[in-house]
Write a protein that binds this DNA or RNA. Structure first.
Lengths: 148, 148
DNA sequence: AATAGGTTCATGCAAATGCATGGAGTTCTG
DNA sequence: CAGAACTCCATGCATTTGCATGAACCTATT
């Protein structure tokens, strides 16, 4: 076995992470829990639910969601049309738009969220031991924190 | 600290993995290496390059690429138009289409690949120790292998 | 305080994506 | 071995996405 450089190690780790994400994502997407929300819509509502006051500036929301700014703008527009969020002016910065999760939005997010969590348990839970799951959580958190 | 159930551990691990993927992906996408190929196009050419004979059935290719079958069909169509792949009939199964990487396709993939690898080294390499990178690789491989 | 430069968001428009479907080929079943 | 069921791929069509751009606002510089 030849010596493995740091570059190769980084490339292998990313490749492995990426492929695992693709494989798990495909299984999660195939599970029958996306009748009320698409995965991206769920991601937005979930992120809002975690935020203080269940509200976030569009710009801040955009940092959590892998979507271009115009696409997120229109996704939020559709969510507002469905009554799951409202859009308010930011009094502190009048350029900004604050996206606020509605009661109905929170309800739908939780409804889908419960089934999604069960789906995750089925697809991710059995793959690794509890210690391994914790290690994976920590390593990914570390990787994420090192970005930008 | 309350006891943590296996369901919670799985959900945390997936959440952490997913967010890390989003954060890294955003940085990789922002790097100036995608002038000749989009990330998805690169992914297809890269996957073909790894396959034996640098060729893959469209259906098999689709299992590696997170894209619907019609979308992949059209992506391959565009790659063929650019001269990076050719489409051949599968003699063994006449329903099938075999996608073959061309010499030019391999050249472009390598050209982008070199810069992409350097980009990965910059964004992923410094985040973790070498042991941690190896551990992450193994855990993600295990997770991936457990899918389906 | 005026102006230049930066930030935040929305919209026009072309391109890419997914869903539903259909055609062609293969495999299973009685 | 006939036909039903399934698999693989492509195409029509509506939706979603990204890029380019512009409007409104904020901030820094002089």
């Amino acid at each position: 076995m030849p010596p493995v450089s740091r570059t190769e190690r980084a490339a292998e780790a990313w490749e492995s992470l990426f492929r695992a994400q693709v494989a798990v994502m495909r299984n999660l997407a195939a599970d029958d829990v996306w009748d009320e929300l698409s995965m991206r819509e769920y991601d937005v509502l979930f992120t809002l639910g975690r935020a203080p006051g269940r509200r976030l500036r569009l710009h801040d929301l955009n940092r959590e969601i892998l979507l271009s700014q115009p696409s997120l703008s229109r996704l939020v527009e559709r969510l507002a049309g469905s009554g799951y969020v409202t859009r308010e002016d930011d009094p502190g910065d009048r350029r900004g738009t604050v996206v606020v999760l509605t009661v109905e939005g929170a309800r739908v997010q939780k409804s889908v969220g419960r089934r999604h969590a069960a789906s995750i348990r089925r697809h991710v839970g059995p793959a690794l031991s509890e210690d391994e799951l914790d290690t994976l959580t920590e390593l990914c958190a570390k990787l994420r924190d090192a970005q930008d």
